[in-house]
Design a protein around this nucleic acid. Structure first.
Lengths: 334, 334
DNA sequence: GTGAAAGCGCTAACAA
DNA sequence: TTGTTAGCGCTTTCAC
């Protein structure tokens, strides 16, 4: 990479003259500016990012820590963050915590050495289970702002972007009840994490309000064979006529299993799942989905962080933004 | 963040003494080392990454440019890269080209300012269609090594990690022929990119060798309704008894559509798709898949790059690593 | 209109 | 054993 020094030497001027010329300073003579710019162009000069970061004490880089990149929702949020950040000239350093508290701490620690100006993150499952938050507080007290999304720690004072999990699941369940469904099951693989609990509660509230049947919950562990679990559950519970799935995989498999067992969907059984558009194509009939607008969540998180980074005025108040889900009716419901 | 300067001041020693003490230099007295380390611990001192990067002229950061983070295969590769890079103390800056040549160029340009030590990338579709490679050559000539994976530009001299697409598809097709399938269709959404073409060729070769029926190819565009396309294709071609899908979505939808139309899978029709394990659960019966070992591809790419970065000896020879796919037989084939 | 010098945080050669 | 100095690439203040 060419440096100012090299340009200066070749042009027989000082480094500061070159710097000023390239930054369109008024001080420098027209002729000089022209000469400098031409040579810079020729050598494809670009200001060294690292030097700038050191000088200005900011990196224009955001650390993003997510529990699992293979989770479609989280990948989509990352996409939203990246796109929004790029707009404002920020880069993204991505770390994957693998749902592990230790890795989450380590990533935070490693990047809190001047590598990034702030963090956007989604809590690891283990972090939520153990309810550890000290590492977040420490990071923030070091002057690195954090924005949490989806799975957040309410006891940490920072900006947050969340989903209306409770309401959305409540409303989805209600909509099945309106279809006169009499035996709706809630299927979930998200037992450990906050959003999973919220979704279950939303479901339970809707069911309990009807006063006609008891909540019925099927929890599936990561290591289980999801297909077998759901199949044997359906065989045991033959009167199931509705499914609320907390994750896309459960929804897709539940629908396919119902069809396999001879149920007509949505005539005999309705299915609603938290899932994305592309997931909804993986069943016939197409899946009715609760969309979380992951890209928007990412974009919002990025905006909140960048705002905080660029606001010189010390804003003390933290914001929590709720990105509302949308129930997209398709062919798996009446 | 605390700096050496602040520690030095508080300890009444010079900056270099502090630096040496923290780096376990033999030069410094035991007592001093102890005092320094204690204070550093107390203040949670961490060497400023940016300053180190500037000093050592390397960032220990890798730029990763991928066309689409929502593509499960690419996300998984990114995961592999991240994990391997982390092992060696490297960070990952992720850029998403959105299959656009312009964005790919821009990302390369933006990071080639000292932000990263090298690149790992997968070509955007547009880049492959237009066959542009100048930006890669320029980057390499600036001293930034590139490792390409999956979709690569053969005319660029750099390390590469690829998949045995041609052979894998040829073999998969062969295996359906061994099942005495008489009318096998190749379904793909990957028309523009190199791997899509390779897969189609592998299929064609296997079919043409049999000399019993003509290759039959269904190409689906991004904007098409994949379900409708496949459904109407199946209705028109009622003798289809085998499917080779170049992508997971096509495979899943083809299988589900076959079942919907009353075909027994695998009795009346076999399906094989390029897909991951989790995809294979989205059909009943479970999908037979060609696994690409995406994580390994990522890990290999990271290794190749880090090797090159750390090898002081100017290695001129470039390597191309082929990560072989595996055909995982499941219930959608005989 | 141009240049010298300081400083961002750090390391390392050299001096004391 | 400890300190001084230079330098990584850049911006910016202050002299000329």
């Amino acid at each position: 990479m060419v440096t100012l020094k090299q340009l200066a030497k070749e042009l027989n001027v000082s480094i500061s003259t070159v710097s000023k010329a390239l930054n369109n300073s008024e001080e420098i003579g027209e002729e000089t500016v022209k000469r400098v710019k031409e040579l810079a162009e020729l050598y494809n000069y670009k200001p060294n990012k690292v030097a700038l970061s050191l000088k200005q004490n900011k990196t224009k880089t955001i650390g993003v820590i997510i529990p699992d990149i293979l989770n479609h929702f989280l990948a989509k949020v990352l996409f939203g963050v990246e796109r929004e950040a790029t707009k404002y000239g920020y880069n993204i350093i991505t770390c994957i915590s693998n749902e592990s508290l230790e890795q989450e701490k380590e990533s935070l620690r490693l990047l809190a050495n001047g590598s990034v100006d702030g963090f956007i993150l989604c809590l690891a499952e283990e972090t939520q289970v153990k309810n550890e938050i000290e590492h977040f507080k420490k990071t923030i007290s070091q002057g690195l702002p954090i924005v949490m999304f989806d799975r957040v720690a309410h006891d940490v004072l920072c900006d947050k972007v969340i989903v209306d999990d409770f309401d959305a699941t409540y409303n989805a369940t209600k909509s099945l009840l309106l279809e006169k469904r009499k035996n709706i099951v809630f299927i979930s693989t998200l037992d450990g994490i906050s959003v999973g609990k919220l979704r279950e509660r939303g479901y339970r509230k809707a069911i309990l309000e009807t006063n006609t049947f008891e909540p019925l919950v099927l929890k599936i562990k990561k290591k289980d064979d999801q297909q077998k679990k759901i199949m044997s559950f359906f065989k045991k519970n033959t009167t199931i006529d509705g499914v609320i799935a907390a994750d896309s995989s459960s929804g897709i498999i539940a629908l396919n299993t119902g069809v396999k067992l001879g149920l007509k969907v949505p005539k005999n059984m309705s299915v609603i799942a938290y899932a994305s558009k592309s997931d909804s194509f993986h069943t016939i009939p197409k899946l009715t989905t609760i969309r979380q607008h992951a890209k928007e969540i990412g974009a919002n998180a990025a905006q909140l962080l960048i705002n905080r980074l660029q606001n010189k005025s010390i804003e003390i108040d933290v914001k929590t933004k709720i990105v509302k889900t949308t129930l997209i009716k398709s062919k798996s419901t009446l």
